[in-house]
């Protein structure tokens, strides 16, 4: 399928992060995003533990569960945990101001773990199989805790400018002169079919 036109190829967005984790930390990415600065000790921990340590209000154990829950609600395998942390961070900040929300979240995590132990004799985050974890979420999906976390993530996760490039979405364009000279009409695969 050769493209016979002389037009330049379509301007395609690579849906990748080009920054390594190390580079991200070194560049102060977290701090810039309003997440607390990482201590040297946290740098030694495995990635998810290090991230969970950022939950100062709800605590690292609750944080770890919420991170797993967020990933199970909107699973994007190519997207790293730190974006899920960024998504949850405003929720934690709200919980710091709102005791009812804090209770909803901590009690929700506790109830989820109780359910997990009842069924699988392990905490939710200790269940390696996604299908086991999902079987628990189908039980709680209509409850206030799940609804709150999920509702928050719709904007918390997808309205985060840092994840947009991973979906091939470019965000604000007016300051770049729109797309009039940046591929608004450069589709190149249609002629072969249409």
């Amino acid at each position: 399928m050769s493209n016979t036109s002389s037009r330049p190829p379509m301007r395609v967005i690579e849906k990748r992060v080009t920054l390594s984790r190390r580079g991200f930390l070194k560049g102060g990415g977290m701090a810039a995003l309003g997440v607390g600065a990482l201590s040297t000790a946290t740098l030694m921990m495995p990635a998810d533990e290090a991230l969970a340590a950022n939950f100062k209000v709800l605590g690292a154990a609750n944080g770890k569960t919420l991170l797993q829950l967020a990933r199970d609600i909107f699973p994007h395998d190519r997207i790293s945990d730190r974006y899920y942390l960024q998504a949850l961070e405003p929720l934690e900040a709200q919980a710091a101001q709102d005791d009812k929300l804090k209770a909803l979240l901590t009690e929700g995590v506790a109830a989820l773990d109780r359910l997990a132990k009842l069924r699988f004799k392990k905490a939710y985050t200790e269940l390696p199989k996604e299908s086991d974890r999902l079987s628990l979420l189908y039980v709680i999906e209509h409850g206030a805790f799940f609804q709150k976390v999920k509702g928050h993530l719709v904007t918390g996760f997808y309205d985060n400018k840092a994840v947009w490039p991973l979906f091939g979405y470019e965000g604000s364009s007016w300051e770049k002169g729109g797309y009039i000279n940046r591929g608004f009409d450069d589709i190149d695969w249609l002629d072969n079919d249409a």
Binding site: K15, I73, F74, P75, H76, E141, K150, G168, Y169
Partner: peptide
């Protein structure tokens, strides 16, 4: 609206 899980995310990954 209200959806979650891979049914949703597998589609959104094709947003482009």
């Amino acid at each position: 609206p209200g959806g979650w899980g891979r049914e949703v995310t597998s589609a959104l990954e094709q947003y482009d």
